[in-house]
């Protein structure tokens, strides 16, 4: 494995657009060349070396053998690992918005928390987050009919609102709670929420959403039966009938209206 360490030189006040921090882009470059890669900080073009200290194995390697370690506060560094196809990125702290945009393969492991739009329109690969994630995990960006189409996202903490909006494939697992409208306008894919959620599956056409905690269920969902999954008894619903949907929603504890 060729390891490359990236450490911010300072706390960024305006966001850095760092779609160039990706194994696919770093792999064919020497450390010297990587330092000269240009990114935008706000409206200014900067070389990576102006913003980050970059060290590690100097020689080019295949992208699948590249590990990029992000050490420090990356919470205002956006689009890390955009469109990556292989290799690994490990963040020791938090990471900013749009991490793993449209990624097709490889792995991003985040020890801290992730910002909004984590893994949006992702097609393959794996993202794991030890902490929490923001809104729109695995969603489609504004106007897009399909969000995530494949791959896997695991969030050990909680996720924000609109988890997996327009999900068309792949799996999102949240061990904690999810916010409002997880799986809105889904057309496939699997969402598993370990804790509670609010109004899951609005406008869902197809796909599966499992809430192992409590959730308020939309009135446009039809109760079908109670099923047992992994030792937990879950109520299974069909919907969203507002959109003639064939999605499956399973909820352990249904929150009554007004409760």
């Amino acid at each position: 494995m060729r390891e490359i360490r990236v450490v911010p030189r300072r706390d960024f006040r305006v966001p850095v657009e760092a779609e160039k921090i990706s194994p696919d882009i770093f792999a064919p470059l020497t450390i010297e060349e990587i330092r000269k890669v240009e990114v935008w900080e706000g409206n200014r073009k900067q070389a990576l070396i102006d913003l980050f200290e970059i060290s590690g194995d100097g020689d080019p390697a295949k992208p699948e053998e590249v590990l990029i370690k992000l050490d420090g506060n990356f919470s205002r560094v956006k689009r890390v690992g955009e469109k990556m196809t292989c290799g690994r990125i490990g963040a020791l702290g938090d990471i900013g918005m749009h991490a793993g945009n449209g990624m097709a393969g490889g792995e991003i492991a985040i020890k801290g928390s992730a910002g909004d739009w984590l893994g949006r329109e992702m097609r393959g690969g794996k993202i794991t987050v030890r902490g929490d994630a923001g809104d729109y995990v695995g969603a489609g960006y504004r106007g897009e009919a399909c969000g995530m189409r494949g791959g896997e996202i695991l969030i050990e903490g909680s996720a924000g609102d609109y988890l997996g909006e327009h999900l068309c494939g792949g799996t999102i697992t949240v061990l904690g709670n999810a916010g409002d409208f997880p799986g809105i306008a889904n057309r496939g894919g699997v969402i598993v929420i370990g804790g509670d959620a609010h109004l899951p599956g609005a406008e869902m056409a197809s796909g599966t959403i499992t809430v192992r905690g409590r959730a308020r269920v939309l009135p446009s969902y039809q109760y079908q039966e109670t099923v047992e999954i992994d030792g937990l008894s879950l109520k299974k619903f069909l919907g969203d009938l507002v959109d003639n949907g064939k999605g499956e929603l399973r909820v352990a504890s249904v929150e009554e209206r007004g409760a």
Binding site: G140, Y141, R142, G143, E144, A145
Partner: peptide, 8 residues
């Protein structure tokens, strides 16, 4: 306006 995805 309807198609921000097209704008991109």
């Amino acid at each position: 306006i309807m198609r921000p995805e097209d704008g991109r």
